[in-house]
Design a binder for these strands. Structure first.
Lengths: 343, 343
DNA sequence: CTGTTAGCGCTTTCAG
DNA sequence: CTGAAAGCGCTAACAG
């Protein structure tokens, strides 16, 4: 920030009036003569005056900045959520301070503390996969910051939350696989601590159970993380089984893509021999060969709604008694990597 | 921001000392007795005091916030650059205010003005594809904000800049195609106004010229944008030519992926009948079938270096006379979608 | 209609 | 060593 910024007192001196008069003109208060207002406005423009938000924030105790913390920004998933957030807040004059925790619990704390110091007006948080205690959230909350948790749930922590119904998405996907005749359906999971990992696995298990397909332990693998590399590794071990699966439901598209490359290399046909289903419906997924069946998530809307709830809280500054818990519905996008339903 | 934040005066009242004493203790000034300091520090911790950065910023004329504007956040490319930026500034205590212009010139102006009001300490800008005049940059600069332009060059605007040598990347790629025996090499371009589009096309043209391959107008197509959809459309029209190309150099991977799907659908072999090369080397590109030959860009480093330059400017507050112009080198990643070099 | 005063939270002279 | 006072840029209450 440059020292030479024109201030309200500069204008005041220039015109030999008091700063308050300038202030009134600038905020077009009714208690000022039209001619004076005009003179002042003209001078302000001429001298390239712009109000110092810092001073205003100090006065109003409101920065109009929202703090956003996501695990990683370099993913289609979270960047799309941010997109939704930005589209929502943009029109209301709020700015975003965005940071990524890189899935680190300590970094998440550090970032949130830094944002609290800057006095952001509120927080939009998607917790890191290593966040299992929520003292830092509690602390932020009890300091009076409104806080909305999105995408990843925090069991045991009370707050406004917006999540996707992972369970339902997984259930749909796996039930579809069953209906298309698959009997040995494997699952490659994501990072163990994530609520999404758990919910998707639950959906998988319940879909099998409900459809009387036996649950086979060796067909369930938990990846290290949610990367394509993990997909490669896990798929390799699935293909080393005595009897290989006839379908694989993957935690996400990245894993599915890794798995697909391994399956293809072995000369195994998709979906004839193995059906493959991902999760997230990333933009490229439909361009793969075969195109990937995947569970689409309303992730843009997730961001939008989270931001809306935060803004609502900010407007209605009364402490609302209950928290909102919004669950958005995902949708199965059927493509070539899975078989067609029998007629 | 909650009203109830503990301030330095609260502490002062509590202990019946003056605010300045508290301030001195908190900043461990030498002019204060150890015992007092300890008492104050303890109370501060107990009352959960945290300094108000707003007040400090107002005083120091420094917010320790950097403004970042990118065309879109939902792309692997820019989010990786932001990644680099954040990794660089994180350790230095700077925070990032990030916004996307959505390739809109007006939005870019709006965002930068908003950030200027917040008094960010400096700007990191990658201009939108519709930004062809730079008055807003000049204005920001002349208001005293340091500014670094990255990834997309602005001809006619002087500032610190960090870009990738698109020309060289394109040249490498196309020369490689020539050397592997391709003779009818097509090019699908990106958004016309972008410096990167122009530079990549130049590289393409010069590589052809230098290697005595004739330049055929009908083989050069400018896409509407840089999406896979555009790749589909453009590739379709290339395949409608009397004589189809034996290679396609695409502006980016997204276009190449779209093109690939069309080529495959027609039953044309890649790379035997048509070689395909992209640009950006997105993470999925190596998982496509065939895996995509692409020009890798040091985009993370681009972010890192841009941030470094901005921070350098911020440290050395003297107006340095000359601007830095850094050009990073891309690298061709050869995969299955292009032929092997003859031995 | 306009100027004076006070104060947001903090640091930094300047006097003790 | 410590307190009082001034000021960062701005607004709002209070006198005119």
């Amino acid at each position: 920030m440059k020292k030479g910024q024109v201030t309200i007192t500069d204008l005041a001196k220039e015109l030999n009036v008091s700063p308050s008069t300038i202030s009134r003109a600038l905020n077009n208060s009714p208690f000022i003569s039209e001619e004076r207002k005009k003179v002042i406005m003209d001078l302000a423009k001429k001298m390239n005056y712009s109000p110092n938000q810092l001073a205003l924030s100090l006065l109003n105790k409101r920065t109009k900045i929202l703090g956003v913390v996501v695990p990683e920004i370099t993913s289609y998933y979270f960047s799309t959520a941010i997109n939704g957030i930005q589209d929502k807040v943009g029109s209301s004059g709020y700015k975003l301070m965005i940071s990524q925790s890189n899935e680190s619990f300590e970094e998440e704390i550090r970032l949130m503390e830094a944002m609290a110091l800057v006095r952001v007006d509120g927080f939009l948080i998607s917790p890191s996969s290593n966040t299992t205690t929520f003292d830092h959230f509690e602390k932020i909350k009890s300091s009076g910051f409104p806080l909305v948790v999105f995408d990843r749930d925090c069991l045991g922590f009370e707050a406004d939350k917006v999540v996707v119904d992972d369970y339902s998405g997984a259930f749909q996907a796996v039930e579809y696989l069953v209906k298309t005749g698959c009997k040995r359906i494997a699952h490659i999971g994501g990072a163990a601590s994530l609520s999404t990992t758990q919910h998707r696995k639950m959906g998988y298990l319940d879909a099998l159970a409900k459809n009387n397909v036996s649950i086979v332990d060796e067909l369930i693998i938990n990846g290290e993380d949610s990367s394509s590399e993990s997909g490669v590794t896990c798929m390799l071990s699935l293909l080393n089984l005595e009897v290989i699966p006839d379908a694989v439901f993957c935690y996400n598209d990245a894993i599915a893509i890794g798995a697909m490359s391994v399956i293809r290399e072995r000369g195994i046909q998709i979906p004839e021999e193995i059906s493959l289903v991902g999760f997230d419906d990333e933009p490229y997924s439909s361009y793969f060969k075969p195109s990937l069946t995947s569970v689409w998530q309303p992730i843009y809307d997730l961001g939008l709604l989270s931001a809306k709830i935060l803004l609502d809280n900010l407007m209605a500054d009364n402490e609302s008694s209950s928290y909102r818990y919004e669950v958005l519905k995902p949708e199965l996008m059927i493509r070539e990597s899975s078989k067609k339903l029998p007629i």
